[in-house]
């Protein structure tokens, strides 16, 4: 692997100043499951690797029912799904956390890292969008917050400016009648990259028969994870029905603009966009009714 220096950072300010000084020659390390592979293969260059796992801000999990969840950008997936309360409150996030790589990847890989890696096919991003997650960013001029759907700007590229890094993710408390899910299509049973992935959340009314709110996001069908606000909006105020779900799926499908690559053709992905949106909504609705 290319030679670099390593710093185990001990404060947010230290990370920001190291990043500001070193520009794109510095890389932030949390779980390393993407970064170390990229450095080894020469796809990324680094003179300095800044390990942020030692910061309280990037490694904490704060959860209170009714208040919501904030978890550090370096929190590995397994710490989220090993927490029964969080797993129950954020089912869409758990769907994603349990299928990013195998167990040994989930022991290291973080959702924050998955977001910063900015793969169009990242599993956690549609789930984070479905759960209305907010990215908390630290930088030279302080902290700013960006909705996750605006965080990625191109394959492998994010909103982060020089000197900035992702500190944590803030996820609102689920409302009563809330349900969410993330599903992906892969040709195998596990350990694969999504051909299409869909994150969806719904909030149903007190009688659990009418949509109050809904959010739908697709992965692997555009240069960035794709939030389709109008697909969710089409459900609001409607009774839960196969027709309403089908219409939302059609809107999501229309928004998808996939490419053909080794994992699937554009045509197949377009088809999957509707199928997976429908299935994910059905799962989210079932969870909302059971909640």
């Amino acid at each position: 692997m290319q030679a670099f220096d390593y710093v185990r950072a001990s404060s947010v300010d230290e990370v920001v100043s190291l990043l500001a000084q070193n520009g794109d020659q510095a890389r932030v390390l949390s779980g390393g499951t993407d970064l170390l592979v990229a450095l080894r293969e020469g796809r990324r260059q680094a003179k300095l690797v800044i390990d942020v796992k030692g910061l309280a801000e990037t490694s904490r999990i704060d959860y209170a029912p009714g208040k919501g969840l904030t978890f550090g950008a370096a929190v590995p997936c397994h710490r989220l799904y090993d927490n029964a309360e969080i797993a129950a409150a954020y089912p869409g996030l758990m769907d994603a956390a349990t299928l990013i790589g195998g167990v040994q990847i989930q022991g290291r890989a973080s959702m924050g890292g998955n977001l910063c890696n900015a793969s169009p096919a990242a599993d956690s991003i549609p789930a984070l969008i479905a759960h209305s997650a907010i990215a908390v960013i630290a930088g030279p001029s302080g902290t700013r917050e960006v909705p996750v759907e605006e965080f990625c700007i191109a394959p492998g590229r994010t909103q982060l400016q020089n000197g900035e890094f992702l500190v944590s993710l803030r996820v609102p408390a689920p409302a009563p009648g809330f349900g969410a899910a993330y599903l992906r299509f892969i040709p195998r049973n596990e350990m694969d990259i999504a051909v299409v992935g869909v994150g969806a959340s719904v909030t149903l009314d007190e009688s659990r028969t009418t949509f109050v709110a809904a959010r739908i996001a697709l992965g692997a069908v555009a240069p960035t994870p794709l939030y389709v606000a109008e697909a969710g909006a089409s459900l609001v105020g409607k009774k839960v029905s196969a027709e309403a779900i089908e219409e939302a799926a059609k809107i999501a499908q229309a928004a998808a603009r996939p490419i053909t690559d080794m994992r699937g053709t554009a045509e197949f992905r377009k088809h999957l966009s509707a199928v997976m949106t429908r299935r994910t909504l059905e799962k989210a609705i079932a969870r909302a009714k059971a909640a």
Binding site: Y6, R8, L29, G31, G32, T33, L36, V37, V49, D51, K53, P76, H78, V103, Q104, I105, G107, R108
Partner: peptide, 18 residues
Amino acid sequence: NVIMNGVLVNSCLVLAVE
């Protein structure tokens, strides 16, 4: 694979300094 602080990890994806 090795077990680090009770967690299963790929040792090829951990820096020794970590």
